[in-house]
Design a protein around this nucleic acid. Structure first.
Length: 909
RNA sequence: GGGCGGUUAGCUCAGUUGGUUAGAGCGCAUGCUUGACAUGCAUGAGGUCAGAGGUUCAAGUCCUCUACCGCCCACCA
């Protein structure tokens, strides 16, 4: 592009909906999102920036939390892209087996079907149909948000490439002895009919009942239960009585010493079990005697193993009592509990029941009480993997933000237990393990499975594949490299692994982040990402977690329809700190939309103010330094400060700080002051055209810089406005691939001088308002100011007159000249500047109000001066504080003294 | 039972390595049809930074304790 640009012009009103869709299309058409897209202007010699986004669950639509994360991810991506780095922002979907089945089960239930009635094959077909619908919705939402995802690389965890990585990873772990099959007590959800990892069990505090039950001791001679000799045990789960295989007491407990070694009869199942001692028993709890159910309780499992007790499983997959439960067989577990309690009571063996505070494990998904059950499952030995992940974070190869999460990270990985990866579900990756009739295990990474049993050579036809699937997190744990072609040694893998930043919510740090770290380091020999950026949760205006059941969910699409994607993104990023939860409210969204509107109108003004001497398609040039005035120098310096502050915020991942800086600069400096100051020069026909041009180019430069800085946060509106802006030589067509801005030079002198005069304007406005002078009238003001400020004052007088609505604003030789004139003026003090408002007409009331204002100011100044003097009088302060601090304190005291003198002089008149 | 976070203006939140005058948005009050913007402009009121103690010349900021709120981890019947 060799010519400056003039677009079709901007609509008078800002309507986000009118520009967003078209702009996304332009980005896609220009192919700027892919690291090697035809429109990419990336410098391939620079390190790639790879952002890792959690693949979205296919089950539902996006909520505000997704929107916030996508906004943050896209912000980082767009910034890196403008810095000229090749960027990879890969879109993905996760099959989310348990969540997806949970949702689909409800859908098919509406048609009167169940998982069982459909069968595995039909069920999975139905699932694919279901997710084909949802995936379109989900991907459309990301697009509406403006996420600059490389759509050509869309990956799904159920794709063959992911499946291959899963098989390979598992086969390697098995070969290395890090995956093993083992019968043990696992967490079982009767509602979902699957086992769960420890992480998927939520410990929920509840008030249950502690029942005391009598077991009858067997007569040593007759072998039948003694009606009189009993031992009482306490239990919160009477249904597990059916699986009891022992009673334990503490070895030093005299109350039960006589019964140790005797046998008791478990009621209903008529099983005779031993009474024995074990020091795990807490003598203070309950009766001091514990019923032992090794197949249904984690503690009892260990106790049972120590004492060689039988393991009697009394429950089936649905949570119903099995044949082992004798008369209760077939009953649902809680129905069985009630029947057992009633029967115990009838037999006179239910001694007591008391309310009991306890922690109950519930399924994260269905909230059913989790049942500990004995099952044979596949486990991953995590201890060695966790050690490597820990070593990596300790060596700072991967940094977790905010840092405080490193502590829980350390704790969890140190205390980690082996990971049960088997799930008794259908939707997911089938475990690639085959069993021969002799029980030999063959694990194969081949898509078609093994040819024969590796142990006995039986042919594949005689082998049966494990019906279970993997925990979803097993495939998502491979995400940073399975998406790049692993296990093949692809060019992508070399180029994009490890990733740069992994962004996600802190709620899945263990589920996902830890697994990616462990598996990434293990299989690739290097960490999967350099930075873990953890976002907080988005809550409703009252701090509640958003959930569909509470009905407080804000749909991102509604917010976008209402206020635009830019406003939503800004609202979600503004004021959010990593790891901190954030409340979302319509007020925040409105504020963000107003900001976008403000920017729109500011741009409209700048573009409309182009001096006629500049052709519409002129190439953008830097303002002529010899032609600009103090206001322009001030603006350029402030823009430079904004660039520096934005850069530093981005370096620190302080995105809330970034939006604050941009909001304040654009609204508080550019719109409130710079544009108003510029209006005078731009419309001054007496000024040489070159001067007016220089002023305009200064505004264009500032706006151009702001648009670039803001683009990562508000991509649509900035792109739309930039389309209308003059281009510099070498600028691309689209802002999305434009260069990140450099800071215009700082100008401390202009900042100080113009800053002081803006203070004067504020003071004059304040005085007018406080004295309730005619708001629309022109004030006659005389100003006395330090000699150093005089040239700036003279240059800006017309602009200052306009801003303060004061004319004439005339300079007098000295402060003394302000006194002794016609009586009844209002004194105004602004730092080193003194001014006097000459009333248009004498007004006794206004004078009185003004006097009150001055008196208040006097009192305040006195207090401040007292403090400043006390500080300086303290020898230790003068001696020990840094010289710069002492110097500042001195200057401050001097300033206050002068001000005090001025005020006293005014009040004395 | 362990650990983490929060407590700053009426509300929602910023506040960098301690530095003297603690900020913003919303809300509130007063006023403004000033040629980019009423999705706006101007001005103002409003804070003993949860409480107590300590370190320091200096504490919203560092340390200790307390209170309240929230979260995470945890196999005691």
């Amino acid at each position: 592009m060799t010519q400056g640009h003039a677009g079709p012009g901007l609509a008078k009103a800002y309507r986000p909906g009118d520009v967003e869709g078209a702009i996304y299309e332009r980005w896609l058409a220009a192919d700027v999102f892919a690291p090697d897209g035809t429109g990419s202007r990336a410098d391939t010699s620079k390190a790639a920036f790879v952002i890792i986004q959690p693949p979205t669950n296919v089950t539902g639509s996006l909520h505000l939390g997704h929107a916030q994360r996508t906004a943050v991810e896209d912000l980082m991506t767009r910034h890196a892209r403008m810095r000229g780095r090749p960027t990879l922002f890969l879109p993905g979907l996760d099959h989310a087996s348990i969540a997806a089945q949970f949702v689909l089960d409800r859908i098919i239930a509406a048609d009167g079907e169940t998982r069982a009635s459909m069968g595995r094959e039909r069920y999975l077909e139905r699932m694919w149909r279901f997710i084909d619908e949802t995936r379109i919705v989900i991907l459309g939402q990301q697009r509406r948000l403006g996420a600059s995802l490389d759509w050509g690389r869309l990956r799904f965890t159920m794709d063959e490439s992911s499946a291959r990585a899963v098989r390979e990873a598992f086969a390697r772990l098995y070969a290395e002895g890090l995956a093993y099959r083992h019968e043990t007590l696992i967490n079982w959800c009767p509602g979902c009919r699957t086992s769960l990892s420890d992480l998927e069990v939520e410990a929920t505090p509840e008030t249950g009942t502690l029942w005391t039950v009598r077991y009858h001791v067997l007569d040593e001679v007759t072998g039948s239960p003694d009606p009189a000799l009993t031992i009482s045990v306490a239990t919160t789960r009477p249904e597990t009585i059916l699986g009891d295989t022992g009673v334990a007491v503490h070895p030093d407990d005299p109350r039960h010493a006589a019964l140790v070694g005797r046998r008791v009869r478990i009621p209903f199942v008529e099983r005779d079990v031993p009474v024995f001692t074990d020091s795990v028993v807490d003598r203070a709890f309950g009766t001091g005697a514990v019923k032992i159910t090794p197949a249904h309780d984690h503690d009892d499992y260990a106790t049972g193993q120590r004492h060689g007790l039988p393991f009697v499983d009394v429950m089936d997959d649905a949570g119903h009592i099995t044949a082992a439960g004798g008369p209760y067989a077939g009953l649902e577990r809680y129905a069985a509990r009630q029947r057992i309690l009633a029967d115990l009571d009838a037999a006179g063996d239910l001694v007591a029941s008391t309310p009991h505070e306890m922690i109950l494990g519930r399924c994260q998904r269905s909230h059913d009480a989790v049942e500990p059950r004995l099952k044979t499952q596949w486990f991953v030995r995590t201890t060695p993997l966790a050690a490597e992940a820990l070593a990596a974070t300790r060596a700072r190869k991967t940094v977790i933000l905010p840092e405080r999460f490193e502590k829980v990270w350390e704790h969890w990985l140190t205390e980690i237990r082996d990971w049960n990866v088997s799930r008794q579900l259908w939707w997911g990756h089938r475990i690639p393990a085959w069993y021969c009739p002799d029980g030999h295990i063959t694990v194969s990474a081949s898509e078609t499975g093994p040819h024969a049993c590796v142990t006995c050579g039986r042919p594949a036809t005689e082998l049966v594949q494990d019906p279970d699937i993997f925990d979803t997190w097993f495939s998502s744990g491979l995400w940073p490299f399975s998406t790049l072609g692993w296990p093949e040694a692809t060019a992508d893998l070399t180029r994009f692994y490890p990733g740069t930043v992994m962004e996600t919510g802190y709620d899945i740090i263990f589920f996902w982040v830890a697994r990616m770290m462990m598996l990434g380091i293990h299989f690739l020999g290097d960490v999967p990402f350099e930075v873990v950026y953890l976002s907080g949760l988005v809550r409703d205006p009252y701090g509640q977690k958003m959930s569909k059941t509470k009905g407080n969910v804000v749909d991102p699409l509604e917010a976008i329809d209402e206020s635009g994607a830019d406003a939503l993104r800004f609202a979600l990023i503004h004021g959010a700190a990593p790891g901190n939860d954030q409340r979302f409210s319509t007020e925040k969204l409105e504020n963000a939309r107003n900001f976008a509107n403000k920017l729109w109108n500011a741009a409209r003004f700048v573009l409309g103010a182009r001096p006629a001497t500049i052709p519409p398609d002129a190439l953008r040039i830097a303002p002529d330094a010899a032609r600009i005035g103090p206001a322009e120098r001030w603006l350029r310096s402030r823009v430079g400060a904004a660039v520096a502050a934005a850069d530093s915020a981005l370096t620190d991942f302080s995105f809330g700080e970034l939006t604050r800086v941009l909001y304040d600069s654009i609204w508080g400096e550019f719109c409130d002051w710079a544009l108003e100051l510029a209006k005078v020069r731009l419309s001054d026909d007496a000024l040489p055209a070159a001067d007016r041009e220089a002023t305009w180019w200064t505004l264009v430069e500032a706006l151009d810089t702001y648009l670039r800085l803001l683009h990562p946060v508000m991509p649509f509106v900035t792109e739309a406005l930039w389309a209308e802006m003059p281009r510099a030589a070498g600028d691309p067509d689209l802002l999305v691939v434009a260069d990140w801005p450099a800071a215009p030079p700082a100008d401390a002198g202009a900042e100080a001088e113009v800053g002081a005069l803006l203070e004067l304007v504020r003071a004059l406005r304040n005085a007018r308002s406080e004295a309730k002078l005619d708001p629309a009238g022109w004030l006659a003001v005389e100003v006395a100011l330090p000699a150093a400020l005089e040239p700036t004052f003279d240059a800006l007088t017309p602009a200052l007159e306009r801003l303060a609505h004061a004319r004439p604003l005339s300079r007098v030789a000295s402060a003394g000249a302000l006194h002794g004139g016609p009586a009844g003026g209002l004194a105004v003090l602004a730092g080193p500047i003194e001014a006097l408002i000459r009333p248009v007409a004498p007004d006794r009331e206004a004078a009185a109000r003004d006097r009150a204002r001055l008196e208040r100011e006097l009192a305040g100044t006195e207090t401040q001066l007292e403090g400043a003097r006390a500080r300086l009088a303290d020898e230790r302060f003068v001696a020990q504080a840094p010289p710069a601090v002492v110097e500042r304190a001195r200057a401050r005291a001097t300033e206050l003294e002068e001000r005090l003198a001025q005020l006293r002089a005014r009040l004395a008149e």
